[in-house]
Amino acid sequence: MQVGTLLAGPVGWLVIGYLGSLAVLLIASFWEVDPLSGEVVRNLSLTNFQTLIDEPVYRTIALRTIVIAGLVTVTDVLLALPIAFYMAKVASRRGKALLVVAVLLPLWSSYLVKVYSWRTILSENGPLNWLLDPLGLHGPGFGNVAVWLVMSYLWLPYMILPIYAGLERIPNSLISASEDLGARPGHTFRRVIMPLVFPAIVAGSIFTFSLTMGDYITPRLVSNNQFIGNVVFNNITNDLPLASAFAVVPILVMIGYLLVARRLGAFEHI
């Protein structure tokens, strides 16, 4: 079959439909809203970006979102590494298969349900406080810590599976060679395994980072704080140009992130 025939549909959909929409978003971010009528005025101006830069609250929100996205990513790497390592290099064949299924099953489903579950766990009379109370402790309640915790929970499998797959690609003979040459396990891990699995970690981090930045439901359910997504969603009906302008921030951050990830070879692992 001709390449043109094959590509017309998908490329048309994604380039005209999707990239076209992103272009519209970019243009709309320069529009304004008439303060009296509330109608969108299609004049190109930098007003929205001026507002975003001038108002300290938007800077705080952008910074908060990016910092939490970074923290979630680091947390997930730390949690995922031992699990993925055990799955790939220590577990028996059977144990491996079971673990893959165990990590895989909660992955694709019930995002909202999982956030909701955490909302009940972290609530004032919830299981966490019930558990901590006898120890004289108190849970984090709703807030930034809760958002960080819940997001780390939600995206953890997206980090485990690419790292696991990356570790599976490393031939055991390399590890044996390192051991035979006298390296201790820690040394082998740092000098042989980590450099080889690093692109896979970056691949996983794309999703943990991007999903955190693009989520406004979790912050709404487990905190009273605003994240970029909340501002965008709250403004989409009344001030579409401002919402669009704020959505440009995660686009720029992600484009930078993806370019770096590509250089690091992460795209082989997605």
């Binding site: 994604l14 999707y18 992103l22 969108v40 991007s210 930045m213 693009g214 686009i251 992600m254």
Partner: peptide
């Protein structure tokens, strides 16, 4: 092509959401 196909899921959900919403309602 692989990059193009991946983009809608690699970009944050709010971005895809706003972009489509802008395009449908405004354009």
């Amino acid at each position: 092509i692989s990059f193009l196909v991946l983009l809608p899921i690699a970009l944050p959900g709010i971005v895809t959401g706003v972009a489509l919403s802008d395009t449908f309602t405004q354009v």
